[in-house]
Design a protein around this nucleic acid. Structure first.
Lengths: 191, 191
DNA sequence: GAATTTTTTTGAGCTAAATCAAAAAATGAT
DNA sequence: ATCATTTTTTGATTTAGCTCAAAAAAATTC
């Protein structure tokens, strides 16, 4: 368990072992049940989580109360509302677990303290952002802008082949920015 | 000129003066005319630019040849195809200047070398990403997902009140992910 | 400043996907 | 197994924004 987690940390960018030890001290192991909210829209995102096992959705509700999923995370991914985490301003999205999950959490102030202390940890954090943020989010924008609903669905299936077993249609449709009815029609080949 | 630029660098995250000097040595001043391509889709994004004065658009062309603007940058902004810059893989977008522009460019390899050399420069780079990337791109996703064409236009006008004077309707429409005709109708109050 | 090119607007249908409503299927609880 | 709840599918209608086509306005060039 703990060994798996330190491997995960080291796989992002290898840290000298004394520094790795110091970093690990600041991560807290947590287990939460399905449906638990890691973060509620409007509150600052105080933690950065490593989702070791489980599933989470990021949701956004507008003034009219319409709620949509903007992102999913599964096993071995990073979880946080990045803009809120880095600024400690109120988050614009909620993060809810969709399965019983195991996570490691680091507090914002601890992370920024470690960045100041260890040059290698700064380099680690840069790699983290590059790998788990920059490469992923840009795709999201171009997908929304260029792909049809059907193409977005097909791409999602390539990214997460078994997503249908873990997450219900309504959540997937909302992520694809289409209605559940439309997704149902796409799947049955009527669109 | 040079003083303005070092102020810009320092405004992101203040650097010790010896390190600032070293950093400045690696930025090259460039002037390019309107319509010049800083980057062409398919080539790795070798540089990170600071756009001191001017305007640029990021464009994406799909297989069918349909081209759309995915982003704009104006005076005192950072310019790069981030996913390509950090990975040095082929870019998925082109970057073209829309006005005669003044820029400072740093090569990818030089930047990564400086990150390894100077802890404070790593902290600077983290702030850069936070300020010029994380806070901006997330908004783009939620805008595309939640706002109507009209709302996206109104929001753009708040962000860049004088964009109409610098950039033509076709480019703006393409950024909003609507046709020029639809934008024209929105502006004349018919939608 | 007249001519050419580029940009913006207007008009008339068309279409992908939304909404509203309800049935069918699957899942979970007693 | 039976009942209740949640999830998924199907059907009918509506709509925001598209396409195609052409006119009008503005900006450039000679």
């Amino acid at each position: 368990m703990k060994a798996d987690f330190s491997n995960f940390i080291n796989s992002i960018y290898p840290l000298p072992y004394q520094i790795l030890d110091d970093v690990l001290l600041h991560f807290q192991y947590k287990e939460y049940p399905k449906n638990y909210y890691l973060l509620k829209q409007g509150r600052p995102c105080k933690y950065l989580w490593v989702l070791v096992k489980g599933a989470a959705r990021y949701t956004f509700s507008d003034e009219t109360g319409k709620e949509s999923n903007v992102w999913f995370s599964f096993d071995n991914d990073i979880v946080a509302d990045a803009p809120s985490f880095v600024s400690q301003k109120p988050s614009t999205e909620s993060i809810q677990l969709l399965e019983d999950s195991e996570l490691y959490a680091i507090e914002n102030s601890h992370l920024y303290h470690l960045l100041q202390q260890h040059h290698s940890f700064s380099l680690w954090y840069i790699k983290l952002i590059e790998k788990y943020y920059i490469t992923q989010i840009e795709d999201r924008v171009t997908d929304l802008q260029f792909l049809t609903a059907k193409q977005r669905y097909e791409k999602l299936l390539i990214q997460f082949p078994n997503i249908g077993n873990r997450i219900n249609l309504g959540h997937i449709a909302s992520y694809l920015n289409i209605t559940q009815e439309t997704l149902s029609r796409i799947r049955s080949g009527k669109l």
